[in-house]
């Protein structure tokens, strides 16, 4: 390409310029998604799946509270990181991405340690409603967060895919734990965690296409 062609390109781009609406601050962009997703998950649990009958007892179970808090922290931080990644230089704060990754790895490690202690017994491996419920819980929030991500201009599409997957997966996991009464770790790993990891893997593989701009 010659300098003349480059000059022509600049002339064309300048000619096409229209005033643009600046992207709002990442926190302001993602806050509605977080609020609506939490409301949506609670609404699905309340009206469609029904909260687990022992939920009030579980609120005094420190392990359950720790598990939900860890998943919530991972989900919220991943959603915030998603908003930062919409800007090409992530506003110079790439460290934000380390928070959800660390929390997610802590969560997974904790689950595997539990699995190693309690055992992943095949007796619990039966097909049930959780897989279907998981899809109901995450389909709409996933579509919305991917749309929001595509409105930005990420320079790290794979990381964006991972952040989207953690955000949606963690909040979906909480939704399942609030409705499914099965506390067995084998059930949790195979029906509450693995489908979200698989979905995240698919998004990660297709990330360059999904978030292309």
């Amino acid at each position: 390409m010659s300098t003349g062609q480059l000059d022509k390109l600049i002339e064309n781009l300048a000619g096409e310029l229209e005033p643009v609406k600046r992207l709002r601050h990442p926190l302001l962009r993602i806050a509605p998604w977080i609020a609506l997703t939490v409301l949506y998950i609670l609404a699905v649990d309340y009206f469609y799946l029904e909260f687990r009958p022992d939920l009030s007892d579980k609120t005094s179970d420190p392990i359950f509270i720790f598990e939900i808090s860890l998943a919530l922290a991972a989900g919220l931080s991943a959603a915030i990181a998603t908003a930062w990644l919409c800007v090409p230089d992530a506003r110079g704060q790439s460290w934000i991405m380390a928070v959800p990754i660390t929390l997610s790895l802590t969560f997974l490690s904790w689950s595997f340690i539990r699995g190693a202690n309690e055992g992943l017994e095949p007796a619990h491996m039966h097909l049930n409603h959780c897989f279907h419920d998981g899809i109901v819980l995450i389909a709409i929030p996933a579509a919305v967060i991917m749309f929001l991500s595509r409105c930005g201009a990420t320079t790290r599409p794979v990381l964006m895919g991972i952040m989207n997957a953690i955000a949606v997966g963690a909040l979906g996991y909480i939704g399942l734990r609030l409705s499914c009464q099965m506390d067995n770790i084998a059930h949790g790993c195979f029906y509450h965690i693995a489908p979200f990891i698989l979905a995240g893997g698919v998004v990660g593989l297709l990330a360059r296409r999904i978030y292309r701009w």
Binding site: Q5, L6, L9, L17, R22, V87, R91, G152, W213
Partner: peptide, 17 residues
């Protein structure tokens, strides 16, 4: 360079003053 200029054009809204 050409691709970068086009990308700058597409993503101008993401620049924060």
């Amino acid at each position: 360079t050409q691709e970068v200029l086009i990308s700058v054009h597409k993503s101008l809204a993401t620049y924060s003053p």
